[in-house]
Amino acid sequence: MAAPDLAAEVEQRVLQLCGEFKQGITYQIIQNDMPTLKLQHIVEIINKLLATSRIDMLKKDDDVLVFKLRDPGSLHRVKGAEPEEQVVYKIIEESGTQGIWAREIRAKSNLHLNTVDKVLRKLESKKLIKSFNSVSAPKKKTYLLYNLEPDRSLTGGAWYSDQHFDSEFVDILNQQCWRFLEQRAVRARQVAGGPIAVRNASYVASKEVLKHISDLGITKVQLSIEDIETILETLVFDGKVERSVASEGAEGVKLYRAVTGLLPTPTLMCIPCGVCPLIKECDDVGNVTPIKCRYMKEWLDLEW
């Protein structure tokens, strides 16, 4: 057994090394640094540091144990926690907003899966961590620190709340963007200088649409340019909006404007036959005939 003050020195040194090597230090590094130290002593010191939560232990991919300096802030958070809890907590903390699966935690901590599960449940109940379902792996729970928001790419971005596609939200945005573009197009018609001037005046850059939507404040969710452009693209496929690209320097800027449809509603859709679900069956014999047709009657007698 090393002398107590010697032990303290070694502890300090180990902590210093951890400070120097932010990515963590291994037994090897400690030994290299203090070659006279016996491995057993190193282990004891490490254990003490772990117990006092001064350092964390992690297992790297190649099964090497690594020790990192523990952030004093988080120390406070998990004060009184079992070592396993600390380990697991640390691992989760490191996964940041990406989150991490239980299986991965087990691999990294080298703890038994059951232990991991127990710890996770405990940490969840302490509201130190939470879980969510990533869209890339909907069946597996992903864990992250309680106060963090999962990365957008995993939750499906702005469009998913609780992994559920929020189509109403999308529809509202769709409408609002359309309204904005339409108003702009109407104003543009007053512009003098010829049809090209009018057309140019009706174009709006996606950036501007984003600002407008953000200003509207209909959602707390922070939308990106890509998000808005996705919405604007759906308007293109609604046949209401046209896209163009202007070159500004190195990149192109996407421009959008509201357009009128080329044709009015075709008459086929103004008669029952156009909307009739039975049109394929309609004949002169049988139950579905023009004479017996219920829709014709309703349409002509206005008795819907």
């Binding site: 103004c270 008669i271 029952p272 156009g274 909307v275 679900p277 039975l278 139950n287 579905v288 219920r294």
Partner: peptide, 10 residues
């Protein structure tokens, strides 16, 4: 035979 119409003639 004639289910209610989802969309009516315009």
């Amino acid at each position: 035979t004639y289910p209610p119409l989802e969309f009516r003639p315009v």
